[in-house]
């Protein structure tokens, strides 16, 4: 016994070194070879690479116009450096705080209301035993996701019309909801839920499909009710995905979609519908205030990035999940 140990150890070391050398040889020898072998792959990557460089990375470089007084004739780097002037102007503009508040609140309320619904829906759909009804439900629930924001907003306008709109017909009123600042967030969030709650189920349903069916059998034998099965089997199975989704959404809290707000905005509901993204568009594209608009947009992006990094750090701390 005593003699065997060092012998084995030596043999092990020898083999270990031999393998290491072999692996190193293989690696150093093949790096060039591997690059040459993969020339087709690099060729494939070339066009997407150039496109990304031109249309994604050069604009990032162009962000510096937020610190310059951009004049098209002088180009990006030739324009005068003005430091934080545009940011100062934004923060001293009368609607600045309102826009920041509206952007944040619209997003936060949206998350609060629309986040739990796909979870509840997918738990119900998953437990449904009638295959045909299950399919029909899914098909119908996914449908609104495939409709353009423009069409959705057109429908909202029609339904909320003060003269003969569906909502007014049902309620027996003739209110013009789109001119009421107090109704804007409700309209935005409710229509958002109608459009995307079903679509949000997909990822949860896909996760639930991986649940081991023998767990259900066992639970049935133990006399567990459907509700108990949902609470003790399905919900725990969904939890990692729920946390992941929640973190991702929290990371984009200042990222409110521009399209719907812009289309539903009226002069009278601006008290709640005035958000940063719309302002960036109006100033940048409609009024051609390039530098100012870029500064406002950069402010928003930076806040978003900070949120994302914080959230990512938290996620890393509490689980193995990491995104950035």
């Amino acid at each position: 016994m005593a003699r065997e140990v060092p012998f084995n150890f030596l043999k092990f070391m020898k083999r270990f070194i031999k393998q290491g050398v072999k692996a190193m040889k293989k690696n150093t020898k093949s790096l060039k070879m591997r690059i040459i072998e993969n020339w087709q792959m690099y060729l494939l990557l070339l066009i997407p690479f150039v496109l990304t460089l031109v249309y994604k990375y050069i604009p990032m470089y162009g962000i510096q116009i937020a610190f310059r007084d951009f004049k098209a004739s002088r180009g990006i780097t030739g324009s005068e450096w003005v430091g934080l002037e545009w940011f100062r102007r934004f923060f001293s503009s009368p609607n600045c705080m309102r826009m920041i508040k509206n952007t944040f609140l619209l997003s936060a309320y949206s998350l609060l209301w629309s986040f739990p619904i796909p979870i509840i829906l997918s738990l119900c759909i998953n437990q449904l035993r009638f295959k045909k009804l299950k399919r029909v439900t899914q098909t119908v629930l996914y449908a609104p996701h495939f409709i353009s924001t423009m069409v959705i907003c057109g429908m909202i306008k029609i339904f909320l019309s003060p003269s003969g709109g569906l909502v007014n017909l049902i309620l027996g009123t003739n209110a013009d909801f789109l001119t009421e600042a107090g109704a804007f967030r409700t309209i935005y969030i409710a229509s958002g839920i109608w459009q995307d709650a079903g679509w949000g189920c997909i990822i949860y349903l896909a996760t639930l499909a991986t649940v081991d069916t023998s767990l259900y059998e066992a639970a049935k034998v133990d006399g567990a009710s459907v509700l108990q099965r949902i609470l003790h089997i399905d919900l725990p199975a969904l939890l990692p995905m729920i946390v992941l989704n929640l973190i991702m959404s929290a990371g984009s809290l200042m990222n409110v979609g521009f399209e719907k707000v812009w289309l539903l905005q009226t002069d009278l509901n601006k008290a709640t519908s005035d958000i940063i993204a719309v302002y960036v568009y109006e100033q940048g594209i409609e009024n051609a205030k390039y530098s100012y608009s870029t500064a406002v947009s950069l402010f928003n992006t930076v806040i978003n990035l900070i949120l994302l990094l914080v959230v990512n750090k938290i996620a890393k701390k509490y689980s193995d999940v990491e995104f950035v």
Binding site: T52, V54, Y55, K56, Y57, I58, P59, M60, Y61, G62, I63, I65, I76, V280, Y281, G284, I285, Y290, S293, T294, S297, L298, T301, L305, L308, V324
Partner: peptide, 14 residues
């Protein structure tokens, strides 16, 4: 590019 971009105007300019 999924997390960070140039934003509306710099992209428009390019």
């Amino acid at each position: 590019t999924m997390y960070f971009g140039g934003g509306l105007v710099p992209t428009y300019l390019i």
